[in-house]
Amino acid sequence: MSQTDSPLPRSRAKAARHSLSGSLERMLPRLVIAPSLAVALFFVYGYMLWTFVLSLTDSGMLPQYDFIGFAQYARLFANERWNVAATNLVVFGGLFIILCLFLGLMLAILLDQRIRQEGALRTIYLYPMALSLIVTGVVWRWILNPGLGVESLVRSWGFEDFTFDWLVNPDMAIYALVMAAVWQASGFVMALFLAGLRSIDDNLFKAAALDGASLPKVYWRIVIPCLRPVVFSAVMILAHIAIKSFDLVMALTGGGPGYATDLPATFMYTYTFTRGEIGLGSASAIMMLCGVLAILVPYLYSELRGNKHG
């Protein structure tokens, strides 16, 4: 910057100013970051810590600090409703992840066949992701409502015996949740896979064609193994969406019928804020945090290690 051919005094003055503004320049990033860091530390990590502290107390309607050790956790695991919520999470999360991966991959492969209007189709498939989960929940509640949606429509066509009551059937309501969530997220997974497919050398397809592999075999043996990192990222993202699912459940089933579609997040909300069991609710929140960490830590570990090698 200072190698201009301007007269000497001016450049010296410039250098002096430069050192002053230089120190400001060096400090500026820290100054800008500091408030948000403080806020994040207080409101995210501070409250995490507070929740953990509360989970060790016998707080009811309001927080109080009579420590009772891990008794709330023992109560939590003895609670039938928590067990339903945890089982639901396994069913919901498992199906949600598997179906999203499968549909997303299929859509991506089909979209990758150099079809017309690919851009428009890609946007259509990606659009559900732009909706808030509340909207998704409300829309699907109307669609699945036996009195308003698909069932009443098909019945009005004359099929009087048709039943499609997943939303109100305690055994099936969780699958209604899966359906709405998959509809929402599979377009996003498709976008991930499509990006992965685009990075694959076209010549691989040619080489495989010359080797005599059929198209399904090319995908199964050559292309999909190349997409392993994408599958990994997609599973990570979907898993934490599944664990944190709250708004979709609230909008679609409200946790019902009964508590048949409770997920840990709605369980936590119900106990903490409507049933006056802050201690138990905090314990369930901490269990959810542990669940997220169990997924996130290996992911971050492998990512950071990968970066170091790359």
């Binding site: 010549n203 005599g212 043996r221």
Partner: peptide, 25 residues
Amino acid sequence: AMVFQSYALYPSMNVRQNIAFGLEM
């Protein structure tokens, strides 16, 4: 059989599987 400029080796297979793939198919 064709040899490509980018080699087009199957990234997920080892050398042995790469060579044998056409025969397997």
